[in-house]
Design a binder for these strands. Structure first.
Lengths: 218, 218
DNA sequence: ACAAATATTTAGATTTGTCTAAAATTTGAT
DNA sequence: ATCAAATTTTAGACAAATCTAAATATTTGT
């Protein structure tokens, strides 16, 4: 599989929302910052290779084999992201570009050893799940913290309110993007929550919880 | 710099023995398993880009800038080799192919963080020196163990006698390729040596020492 | 010094991945 | 149901990196 082919496979996979739905030539072109005509050429080739199913004017999706290739790429990408954050102290938002390169390295042994070194992580620094060696993985959904049931945990991935006071609050309570948050208890009376962040238990109000997005794997 | 250009730069560098001597079109073609005509085309391009000096029919060498690029590639290659052996438990002889891919990853931050994670190693698993961030590094030479002065250490890189009895001896004394050996003491009477391998001090005869190659950085 | 052998370059073709411009197909609004 | 707009494909061109075969330059042996 060439570098370019792999990039197309990943684009088709991601546009298909992991459900391998059919995606259009234009969508792929948009996603990849290329031209629709280039996409047509490439999906023909991928189809010939048994990686994708393509029908003229009807769009393209991955074959079973193509899906496997895509999942391997996603697995490698996310493992490298964990490596960069955990072992090399990269920041949450610095890892993507480098992981885009690293995901193309071809060595099953490397991927699996990396997985082991990192302790077989389930999610990447963005809270997205990491496929296992045989391609299984859970879906992740993005929810507001106040919609998450007691006992489940997720990765902090964004804010709904990006005003200075709210961000300052997060900072003061040492809540940062990429942190794992566990919902310990919910107060029925006012909707406030006890949560665990970085080993510490803190209480936050419903208004706070309604403005913080977590990604959880269900 | 494209992948292909980087491969040519590395080939010119290595054929020039690190001294940046002039190398011939044919030598480069041989080294890269490609055809001389392809080399001609590429070195013209590298010359236009200010990476190499090329004179028709006279051969090619790197410019100051090209040398810098080459040293960065060598640095990355060897750091990744250390990573694979030290952190992912790859064997001595499994690392080269993967490092060939990893050396092309473009991220200064990645390279320097990796260097730090590994504790700023001086040599790779083959005993070859790792250039520092600014391109300085010592030369390595290959010598028989019995020619190495007391107090210096090197990396075990090969054997002169590859007979079963000799290899069995090495195995029994837990001496393997890639090990670091320190010469502790030399016995004048019979030329036998006290050496340190993997933290243990052992005594070996002159005949043994005369059949084991070490790489030392002087 | 010069012919033969070797090394190197040139010319032209090929493959991969891309593009533009034009043609074909599909979609959607009335 | 029709036709204009949007989407998609085709045709032809291009750049990068490679190759083969032929031409040219250099080196070597006597």
């Amino acid at each position: 599989m060439t570098l370019s082919e792999e990039d197309y496979i990943k684009a088709i996979y991601h546009l298909g929302k992991g459900e391998n739905s059919i995606v259009s030539t234009n969508e792929v072109a948009e996603q990849m910052s290329t031209k629709p005509s280039s996409v047509t050429d490439m999906v023909k080739k991928l189809s010939d290779k048994g990686v994708a199913n393509y029908k003229k004017y009807k769009g393209v999706c991955l074959t079973e084999y193509g899906l496997k290739v895509a999942l391997t790429l996603v697995r490698k990408h996310r493992l490298w992201e964990v490596f960069l954050v955990e072992k090399l102290n990269f920041a949450w938002d610095e890892v993507h570009e480098v992981a885009e390169q690293l995901e193309h390295i071809k060595s099953e042994k490397l991927t699996d050893s990396l997985d082991k070194l990192l302790g077989f992580p389930q999610v990447d620094p963005h809270g997205d799940p990491i496929p296992s060696k045989n391609g299984e993985f859970k879906k992740a959904v993005k929810k507001l913290l106040n919609e998450i049931p007691v006992g489940t945990s997720g990765t902090c991935v964004g804010v709904r309110d990006s005003s200075a006071p709210f961000l300052k609050f997060l900072d003061k309570n040492k809540i940062a993007l990429g942190d794992t948050i566990l919902v310990l208890e919910k107060e029925e009376f006012d909707g406030s929550l006890y949560i665990q962040v970085k080993g510490e238990d803190i209480r936050i109000s419903d208004q706070i919880a309604a403005n913080l997005y977590l990604k959880i794997t269900e």
